[in-house]
Nucleic acid binder design. Structure first.
Lengths: 204, 204
DNA sequence: GACCACTTTTGAACACGTTCAAGAAAGCGA
DNA sequence: TCGCTTTCTTGAACGTGTTCAAAAGTGGTC
């Protein structure tokens, strides 16, 4: 992690990592299957930091929009120091075959933990979504976060302020959508979306 | 392209490509800056095929939902033969610094052509979106297609039928949303979304 | 034809991720 | 302590993308 942070992922060689750790090159491969596998450590660390930061938000706020804003914001804050080389990380994660992909079985624990966080965010908030929407909302919010992460990776503005702006503007929209979800007209669309999510989850 | 299709991107070496082309290894690098640059040829070819297929759809149908369905479907059909190694392509495209990224300046021509296609799709259809939405719709539909592509990359179902199911189910939703866009309640949300898109486009 | 600048071509060399056969160390039952 | 198995460690070697200095070719001018 020290070398990755200092030199970036691409410029850090396995030989340098082995040397820094005081072991031989081959020995590094005894403990880590590949260079990619080292990144898992980065993910785990990031997720732990985010979970802690999100916890403070959930303790503090009870309004749905504030909770969502806080949790998404917390991720941006936690991830900021790593922005420069995060692109290289996520490049690997984008490979569907990579164990680092957020949709891979290997990532299931981290993914489930994250979805559980959003479940808590919803349940203990003042949000009153349409009944059909409620069970899907945590997963949809997780997907929203994946979208924010994707945007963030491409965001080259200073301190990723555009990502912050995105979060600040999209949270009220989501909040409004959740409120509107019980209105008759909107309801039909929501039902369709929920149906879509269901259809895609269970292999058709 | 022949070798990529036969062996996959990862297993095709630059040496093999050079040999197949009857030139030396170094000479391949005189004409293509890197192995990645060779992929551009794949993109261009794919886009041309899709443009042609989409053209036939736009000639045939006038209803907005049918046009959208046809255009998205056409992409899936055109891309299907390349699904297996497309993951490797898109992995490179996921790197924000890569010229292959759909958001990069180098991809601007292809991106603009694609957005123009969606503009035609909307304009010559029977859709009557909210005035504020109309100018943004082509870009939003292009984004939708990027989403479909992302889903498709991860789709390991036979013949990517899940991707087809996604398109079949999401098109009516989009159609309905466009219809609803002029309703007073929904209108507010649409305005917010359009505002968001504007805010993110011009550096804030 | 001789000279020159420029373009094209070449293959050796390099860096780095990864593999592997061989050896060293550690644990353990007798 | 001795032998055996298992775990750990090592560095040489390999494959591949990429670079580069040198050679070969091309075309134009006098």
């Amino acid at each position: 992690m020290r070398l990755f942070n200092r030199e970036g992922y691409g410029r850090t060689t396995m030989r340098a990592i082995a040397a820094e750790a005081g072991v031989s090159l081959g020995n590094a491969y005894y403990y880590f299957g590949s260079k990619e596998h080292l990144i898992q450590a980065f993910y785990d660390q990031l997720q732990a930091e985010h979970a802690a930061a999100a916890e403070r938000v959930l303790q503090r706020d009870s309004r749905f929009d504030q909770r969502l804003h806080g949790v998404l914001h917390a991720w941006l804050d936690v991830a900021e120091p790593h922005h420069e080389f995060a692109g290289e990380f996520f490049r690997n994660a984008a490979d569907p075959k990579s164990p680092l992909s957020p949709f891979s079985p290997e990532s299931a624990p981290a993914r489930d933990a994250s979805i559980a966080l959003f479940a808590r965010l919803v349940e203990e908030s003042d949000a009153k979504p349409l009944a059909a929407l409620r069970p899907e909302l945590p997963q949809l919010l997780w997907l929203l976060q994946m979208g924010v992460v994707l945007f963030w990776v491409y965001d080259d503005s200073p301190h990723q302020q555009r990502s912050h702006a995105l979060v600040a503007r999209i949270v009220p929209i989501v909040d409004r959508l959740v409120r509107l979800s019980r209105l008759p007209v909107v309801r039909g669309v929501i039902d369709d979306v929920v149906g879509l999510v269901h259809a895609l989850r269970s292999p058709s």
